[in-house]
Design a protein around this nucleic acid. Structure first.
Lengths: 346, 346
DNA sequence: TTGTAGGCGTTATCAC
DNA sequence: GTGATAACGCCTACAA
């Protein structure tokens, strides 16, 4: 079987195969695919027919190599199992897809070293832009990114020295704001339960701490943290152990996310602790469950989908060569007070 | 600035740049990267130094083109915002990443036409394998996949005629099993609440229906479905409206997933309906919340992470050329009975 | 509107 | 162990 026959039955068809079948040159086929307007109706139809007949699918590697445009946006997130990033990804995919870009996604497992490795992998795909999470890249990683000379968006948090573009919100402010509201609701001995404790969670804690310190209400003994990943189950455990270690001398708990908060809420129900009367409870991220659980859970809404949309939009605009409006976008947040911190009847 | 200087300060470095700097041929650099054992210690070090100095990152497009190996696994899922796929993706990413494969992920928004488009996009990246969801591809899409001559895994459900490999479980059996348990728990007028209603949910409903019909307990009036995407809020709404339309003549409700079931549970609490005494409730997929909510929620556990691992493992094994054990894997499911269907004290 | 020539960066093949 | 040469499939010039 030496002589290579053209057709779906054999090797994958190439541009040349299509061209031969349609009796045109390869470049014409290329044009039919990429700039159909520049080809006469007649040829276009003939070529299209050949394409269909052969089941031709363009080879993007060859295209990237020849044109220096891959159509790929590299995206790096710290965790695929953290629901928070789902929403962000949805936003990114929706915008990128609509503009004809593919998304190459990697998961760094919250490790800067793995992130460095993954970014290298992404860059080897010649992405036209990168969207990465936060600002804790290794030096080598940041160097690679700069060297790549592609637009970069760092998302999820506001950075003091972004590599290029940046979209997020201040986790410090968010933590501060939530703490203020808890206090305003009449709680005094406010505990903190945090897991994973990445940079952003630390900032929430710092904001929380500052708000309490300003009122002389902060007490280290009421802060419980762990590097373990957040989960509802863990929230329950940590809550129970915080109540034990403080012998119940806590009248409210701020959980660093809604998973922990839901866990704490469910556990408090089992412990027969009345929320919000005996104990105020709030979370972060405002998952859907927080609205519907009983009592409904106070939380900080974070515009995750919008953040993804914003990140991808910034990228797409730059790639389009459009005048860039803002390099840094504060996407904001919103404290949503619900029953779980409503000490007084309402 | 005509004469092109080598170095990070200018254009991206290539294999040739590295070769020149290290005074070796390009192929040697290639070997240092891909088969370090085949290069002498001395040259390897010299080359590695040049690589670091130039910040060289291989161009994967060129590599794919020349070697016909892209290192990419194409993955297609119907929704990025459905948490179910998170777990599956985690499994796929963990295995693929560990074996040095990149994952190119697309979201078809539950549309076969979009799926066809997305699969075409994936195939244009010359993936070495494909993992897709279910079996409802368009004819054209299935043809493309066969034509691509790469291993394909269809996941999430067991198919009667898989394209190639298949990992999943029988949603019909799962629906049937859950219905049996509800009945065994002493419930008689069992309603069904379903959203999205894709093929798999329809099969759950069919299994549920069969179990009830075999006992003369099925009543169409107790089935509520909608094409809308599932959510906790929607679960609450649908539950309330089912209770209204049936005037409460329902003593248990099987929700097609845990989102709906949690919504129904929270809503039943607000309606002062006692679960499980006055009403049995169960869901599907066994989200973490189901274990911890009060009352805990009966659900069908589905090994999603394992399914992703299995799918990716099958792919990786085939790509390694290892003897293939099974082309079709039933990953199973498990009914988990909890308080929400425990009519009798326990 | 269509075609020709050359090269994108890497690797397979075969020689040294 | 190392290197020269020719693809890989497509696109950017430029030409007709």
């Amino acid at each position: 079987m030496r002589p290579r026959k053209r057709g779906p039955a054999n090797k994958k068809a190439t541009l040349v195969d299509v061209a031969e079948r349609a009796n045109v040159s390869a470049i014409t086929v290329s044009r039919v695919i990429n700039q159909p307007d520049k080809v006469s109706e007649e040829l276009r139809l003939r070529v299209q027919q050949a394409i269909d007949a052969l089941g031709y699918i363009p080879n993007q590697s060859a295209s990237s190599l020849a044109s220096a445009r891959s159509g790929v946006i590299g995206v790096s997130i710290p965790s695929l199992s953290n629901v928070v990033f789902n929403d962000v990804l949805s936003g990114i995919y929706d915008v990128a897809g609509a503009s004809g870009y593919k998304v190459l996604l990697v998961d760094t497992h919250y490790s800067p070293l793995e992130e460095e490795r993954m970014v290298r992998t992404l860059l080897s795909q010649s992405p036209e832009a990168m969207i990465i999470t936060g600002g804790e890249q290794t030096d080598a990683c940041q160097r690679m990114l700069k060297n790549a000379r592609v637009p970069v968006v760092q998302m999820m948090e506001l950075l003091s020295e972004p590599l290029d573009m940046n979209v997020g919100f201040s986790h410090h402010q968010a933590g501060y704001a939530m703490a203020e509201q808890i206090i305003a609701a009449g709680y005094q001995r406010v505990g903190f339960v945090g897991a994973r404790m990445d940079k952003r969670v630390q900032q929430r804690l710092a904001g929380f701490r500052q708000a309490l310190e300003e009122r002389n209400l902060f007490d280290t003994a009421l802060v419980a943290t762990t590097p373990k990943p957040s989960s509802i189950g863990l929230g329950g455990e940590m809550f129970r152990s915080l109540m034990a270690s403080t012998q119940g001398a806590v009248d409210a708990v701020f959980c660093c996310n809604d998973d922990l908060a839901l866990g704490a809420l469910f556990e408090s129900q089992r412990m027969n602790i009345k929320v919000p009367e005996e104990l105020g409870l709030c979370g972060f991220n405002d998952f859907e469950a927080s609205t519907f659980v009983n009592p409904s859970l106070t939380s900080v809404y974070t515009p995750r989908y919008d953040m993804g949309v914003q990140a991808a939009t910034m990228i797409v605009n730059v790639l389009k060569g459009e005048p860039q409006s803002e390099k840094i976008v504060d996407i904001g947040f919103e404290v949503r007070l619900r029953q779980s911190t409503r000490r007084t009847a309402n």
